Computed example of a mutant assay.
Amino acid sequence: MKRTKMRLTSAAIGATIALSGATTASAYSYFVIYHGNDYSITYGGNTGRAAISACDNELDGNEAYALYVRKSDSYNSPRRVEDGTGADGVCVDSGSSDSNYITNAKTCENIAFYPDACSPWRF
C-alpha cells in the first residue's frame, strides 16, 4: 500500500472539525476521531470515508495510529496507518478508495510495554 505524508494546517483542521461537529458525522460524513491530542480523520470521495489519516499530535514518544476497516475487509482484520513523528503537523495517509470506503475506524496510541490505548470504534 502506498503511503504518503500530508500536512494539515490549523485552518484545515479547524474547518474539518467545524464540519464534523468534533467527533460525529456532518452532512458530508467526515469524521475526526480523537484519543487524547492524537487523532485520525476520514475524508474524500462520495462517502467522506475514502481515506483516513493518522495524526500524532503529542511529543510523548508514543506512536499514534489509526485502525480501520474497509467495506471489503473482515472486521477481525483491521488495516493500520501509523504516524510516529510526534506533533510535527504531518499526518500519514492510508490511500484512497471511494468504492471500498471505510466502515469503521479508531485512533490508538502505541505505549511501550503496556497495552495500546484506543478510542472506541466509530461509525
Rank of each mutant, 00 (worst) to 15 (best):
M1W: 03
R3C: 01
T4D: 14
K5H: 09
M6H: 11
M6N: 11
M6E: 15
R7G: 06
R7I: 15
L8C: 07
S10C: 06
S10T: 13
A11G: 02
A11Q: 14
A11Y: 07
A11H: 11
A12F: 14
A12S: 15
G14M: 00
G14I: 00
A15I: 08
A15L: 12
A15F: 07
T16F: 08
T16E: 12
I17R: 14
A18Y: 05
L19R: 14
S20E: 10
A22K: 08
T23N: 11
T24M: 08
T24L: 03
A25G: 10
A25E: 13
A27I: 10
A27F: 06
A27E: 09
Y28Q: 12
S29A: 15
Y30D: 11
Y30A: 10
V32S: 09
I33D: 09
G36F: 09
N37D: 13
D38W: 03
D38S: 03
Y39A: 03
S40V: 12
S40K: 07
I41C: 13
T42I: 07
Y43H: 13
Y43G: 05
G44H: 00
G44F: 01
G44A: 02
G44E: 03
G45N: 04
G45M: 02
G45Q: 03
N46A: 12
N46F: 04
A50I: 09
I52H: 06
I52R: 06
S53D: 11
S53G: 05
A54T: 09
A54S: 15
A54F: 08
C55V: 05
C55D: 05
C55T: 01
C55W: 06
E58D: 04
L59W: 08
L59H: 09
D60Q: 01
G61I: 06
A64Y: 02
A64R: 04
A64C: 08
Y65I: 01
Y65A: 00
L67E: 15
Y68D: 01
Y68P: 01
R70S: 11
S72K: 12
D73F: 05
S74P: 01
S74L: 06
Y75V: 14
Y75A: 14
N76T: 15
S77E: 10
R79C: 04
R79W: 10
R80S: 12
R80D: 11
V81R: 03
E82L: 10
G84V: 00
G84K: 02
T85D: 15
T85P: 01
G86R: 06
G86N: 14
G89S: 05
V90G: 00
V90M: 10
C91F: 02
V92M: 13
D93Q: 13
S94T: 07
S97W: 12
D98T: 11
D98H: 03
S99G: 04
S99V: 13
S99L: 08
N100P: 04
N100F: 05
N100M: 04
Y101Q: 04
T103H: 06
T103I: 15
N104M: 14
N104T: 08
K106D: 02
T107K: 08
T107D: 12
E109L: 04
N110E: 15
A112F: 07
F113E: 10
F113Y: 08
P115F: 09
P115R: 12
D116Y: 00
A117Q: 14
A117M: 12
S119V: 05
P120L: 00
P120C: 01
W121Q: 10
W121V: 11
R122W: 11
R122I: 12
F123Y: 13
